[in-house]
């Protein structure tokens, strides 16, 4: 039904390249579909909704500069889902969609950059790790080494490096959960670590 109009409309998608960057569609399509699926739509329905969403977005005048496209698209899409929820009289509370918090990469980074306490909590969780786990985590996330490079630098086998990284991340998550309870900073940490 509606899919037909999406297909015909899709051809006009590129006419608006100057207004809606192509990359938005390729970059965010999968995420928006997954969000739709999260709220109970089938994969096919989610694809249709996302197609129509981008077609409608093409018609909009996006002349003003959008600083954080990911956040913009996700927020607009949540609004679309709420509209659909109401119009289709779907079960459940539409406010669940409203409250669904899925920050963009930029929002995560900005939050981290401005929230010293949050950084300290991650640092505390990291400091509790055994030295050998901290070492490989440091190499990967500070020095930017690939696992292969860590293997070459340390002399450990690939399996050992992989195990140490996995254990490190596992323990870090546990430590962060403990931090959350102990410090009662649920608001901050929920934002980062649901």
């Amino acid at each position: 039904m509606r899919l037909k109009s999406y297909c015909s409309g899709k051809r006009s998608f590129h006419k608006f390249d100057n207004m809606l960057p192509d990359s938005w569609y390729t970059d965010f399509k999968a995420k928006l579909q997954a969000i739709a699926c999260h709220f109970g739509y089938t994969v096919e329905e989610a694809e249709d909704i996302v197609q129509q969403f981008f077609l409608d977005l093409l018609q909009k005048d996006l002349a003003t500069e959008i600083r954080d496209p990911e956040a913009y698209v996700v927020t607009a899409f949540k609004r679309r889902l709420i509209d659909l929820h109401r119009s289709q009289q779907r079960k459940g509370d539409y406010r669940d969609i409203e409250l669904f918090n899925i920050p963009s990469a930029q929002e995560i980074i900005e939050r981290l950059e401005t929230d010293e306490e949050l950084i300290n909590h991650i640092a505390d969780a990291y400091k509790k790790l055994p030295a050998r786990l901290r070492r490989v985590i440091y190499m990967k996330y500070y020095q930017g080494y690939s696992t292969e490079k860590i293997v070459a630098v340390t002399g450990f086998t690939h399996q050992t490096v992989y195990n140490n990284l996995s254990k490190g991340i596992q323990q870090l998550r546990q430590n962060l959960r403990k931090e959350k309870v102990l410090t009662r900073l649920a608001g901050f940490l929920l934002f980062l670590f649901p």
Partner: peptide
């Protein structure tokens, strides 16, 4: 699509670790 939240948590951890190590 059911892996959305898993991927989001992983992304937050990657970005959080990188930024924490840079800031410290």
């Amino acid at each position: 699509p059911e892996e959305l939240l898993t991927m989001e948590e992983a992304r937050k951890l990657v970005l959080g670790l990188r930024l924490m190590l840079q800031q410290k």
